[in-house]
Nucleic acid binder design. Structure first.
Lengths: 252, 252
DNA sequence: CGAGTACATTGCAGAAGGTGCAACGAGGAG
DNA sequence: CTCCTCGTTGCACCTTCTGCAATGTACTCG
């Protein structure tokens, strides 16, 4: 649509992979060197690329600062990272940290299972997660104020990914009530039939649920029941992270 | 220089901070909505931004994937992260992980000192480090094959940042020999007069030095001598990371 | 329930910005 | 010392981007 921008993006990608000379850049885009030069200079001004002493262009720190900015709450990530790692080691399963940002829930950290899983989980840091067909999504939704929950679900078009998906508002609300009562959520293959999860909420200093940790496994590795056996560790991890964020559990 | 690209970058920045509606986007840039729309659509195609159900634009996962790609060697980061954290906790000082990428040395991870330092270190993940006026730079240089060292230093213009800077090739080479012999490097305020560092090399499975860990403090907090007392921990951390990368120390 | 409002989206003509050319400059190799 | 390659600059042309106006769509309020 906007080809100069497309060209710029193309160059960013290349530069991130491998140092790029001006002539290479022009070659890749199939444009004149002067054109490539101007694009690179613009990107350099934004520190999206950086010019090395040798005259090659490489990715710049601007991009990383941006992702940091976007992933926001580096606090949360920083505090959570060692706990996630611990949890991964103790359970052996893949661990996710997801957070509500804007209108959606995205993964902000992930610790892969140490096992040489034949099957890689497709989740990626920065990706949005289904808000109603995931354990992290449901556990966050469950603790959101009524109006907030309504706002998030207002635009959602429910889709029945698998037989277990809660694919309408009524059954989802019932599930959320259940989740809210027991304090954790599961994902019984609700998005991908063979992927199981258990998730627990993370609270900030005001007690608001703002994120969630989960452990995930494909059914071949562990059934949902087996995952649920790890629940004490999961809940402890979530609580520990919450405490680091300044949360003090009310004595109820 | 290329204003459509500048505009695109501007929008990326905004979207990373806060969900953005089309009208806002147009307002920010001072252009017509249709213009803003086309830019956003282009960015969306590259997944630099993503459109939420509510119609707002937020940062997209493409950016994060890019930084991951650029920081490369996620292996190194992953393996190193917990060790760095440990080292930070034990020493109390800021810990850096730097790596040789292309022609330069960049920080690929950082664990800030837990202390409420009045002075923040200006280092940032993704930023390039001076190759000859930093502990990490020198320790990596010291173990590089002769030709590689020459290549990296060929384009360098030496600058005497402070009285302690090794500002010419001859004195730098002498220093590198010393570093190579004892197995670690210091930065005695060679770039910024009040910033002290001690760094140790990290090796990959072939035994090549590819990165370095360092502990850093401003002189008010700790003198170089005090940092050197932490040397055993630093060296142990470096070796542990090297082992995780598959390095097996030769019995010399 | 229906009109009104606010917002996103599309097509098109004009114009501004981007493009390629050619010439210059700098650095390295032989 | 000369040639060659690569990065950089100024400029005229033309492609591409822009803004307008009209259409479509979703939400609101009477």
């Amino acid at each position: 649509m906007a080809q100069s921008i497309e060209r710029a993006i193309n160059l960013i990608r290349r530069a991130a992979e491998h140092p790029l000379t001006l002539t290479e850049a022009a070659g890749v885009l199939g444009v004149h060197k002067s054109t490539a030069l101007r694009i690179l200079q613009t990107l350099e001004a934004a520190r999206f690329v950086r010019k090395t002493g040798a005259g090659t262009y490489v990715f710049g720190s601007g991009l990383i600062e941006l992702s940091d900015l976007a992933l926001g709450s580096m606090d949360l990530r920083q505090f959570a990272a060692p706990q996630l790692r611990d949890l991964q080691r103790k359970t052996g399963h893949t661990v996710h940290l997801a957070q509500l940002t804007g209108d959606e829930i995205i993964y902000i950290d992930k610790v892969d299972s140490a096992a040489f899983d034949a099957v890689k989980l497709p989740s990626r840091i920065g990706r949005a997660v289904s808000i109603y067909a995931s354990a992290v999504g449901k556990v966050i939704l469950a603790y959101l104020p009524r109006e907030e929950r309504d706002r998030l679900l207002a635009h959602v078009e429910f889709e029945r990914y698998t037989p277990t998906t809660f694919a309408d508002r009524a059954s989802l609300d019932a599930e959320l009530t259940r989740v809210g009562e027991r304090g954790w959520a599961t994902d019984n293959g609700e998005h991908d039939a063979y992927v199981m999860c258990v998730a627990a909420p993370i609270r900030d200093s005001r007690g608001h649920v703002i994120a969630a940790v989960s452990i995930t496994a494909i059914e071949v590795i562990a059934t949902l029941g087996q995952l649920e056996q790890r629940l004490p560790m999961l809940l402890e991890t979530a609580e520990r992270i919450s405490r680091e964020l300044g949360y003090t559990p009310a004595e109820s």
